[in-house]
């Protein structure tokens, strides 16, 4: 440790005798890490793990692949196991606190006041009720091109089809919503539309005029999308930019 060139100057008091730390000198942080209680144990664990890791790597035939992504094993899976075991606990909690309902037995002759599928099909059910939007064609003498029901099925296909082609429309390296305000606002529009169309599917239970409800169903999503776009643009220009500057330096957007 001791450096001969400096030991003889030990008595200097003007401050010039201070030796700048070289690579061998432990920093204060390291010293602290190595000397006290739990942090010392941590340090020892890290050392041990580093050593064992090195041994394992040396004896392993695992070839690192050049994939620009986050490894599923062990990172993602261990993290996910920790989080999702909590979530599975939540399923048990919900199952024990809010057990499901069993209604009256099926009776074809008695139409119930509520005819609804489960909640996750509301959006599809709402699209089936879009009859009023089915255009009357002048060429066919005011007749509708297809039955209202068929129109609803087509609407479902259009929505699912649009979602399916999104990866072919939106390319590039942008990942965060702030990097792609347009597509993020399209997403917000879609989410809000899923909600409004679900509400529209329950139109007989909503205390609103059905024409007004239909208008709102199609007006609210673009408004929400526009707000999201404005917010994301502002964030991009503003403080998020500072936060991400390092990131942009590393991976400039195409």
């Amino acid at each position: 440790m001791a450096d001969d060139e400096h030991t003889d100057d030990a008595a200097r008091t003007d401050g010039t005798g201070i030796v700048p730390p070289d690579d061998e000198t432990p920093t204060w942080r390291e010293r602290k890490e190595r000397t006290t209680g739990l942090s010392r144990l941590t340090y020892e664990y890290f050392e041990r793990s580093r050593r064992e890791d090195q041994d394992l790597r040396e004896e392993s035939d695992y070839v690192e692949r050049d994939v620009l992504a986050f490894p599923v094993w062990p990172h993602e899976l261990i993290r996910n196991l920790a989080l999702t075991s909590f979530f599975v606990g939540m399923i048990f909690f919900l199952a024990s606190t809010l057990p499901p309902h069993l209604g009256a037995p099926a009776n074809p002759s008695q139409t119930p006041s509520i005819i609804l599928p489960d909640w996750y099909l509301y959006w599809s059910f709402g699209l089936l009720k879009l009859g009023p939007l089915n255009p009357d064609l002048a060429i066919l003498g005011g007749e509708k091109l297809m039955a209202d029901r068929t129109y609803g099925v087509v609407a479902n296909l259009v929505v699912v089809g649009f979602i399916a082609i999104v990866p072919f429309l939106n390319k590039g390296s942008a990942r965060r919503p702030v990097e792609q305000p347009f597509w993020a606002s399209v997403g917000v529009m879609g989410v809000v539309f899923a909600f409004t169309i679900s509400v529209y599917s329950m139109k007989t239970h909503v205390p609103l005029d059905s024409h007004l409800l239909l208008d709102l169903t199609f007006l609210v999503p673009p408004i929400a999308g526009a707000i999201a776009y404005a917010v994301l643009k502002t964030m991009r220009e503003g403080y998020m930019y500072d936060l991400n500057r390092r990131y942009y330096k590393l991976r400039p957007p195409k």
């Binding site: 919900l94 606190t97 809010l98 209604g103 006041s113 509520i114």
Partner: peptide, 14 residues
């Protein structure tokens, strides 16, 4: 809230 409301503020399914 949801659990408690399911217990105390849901008189029936209909």
């Amino acid at each position: 809230w949801m659990v408690l409301a399911g217990w105390y503020k849901t008189p029936s399914f209909a």
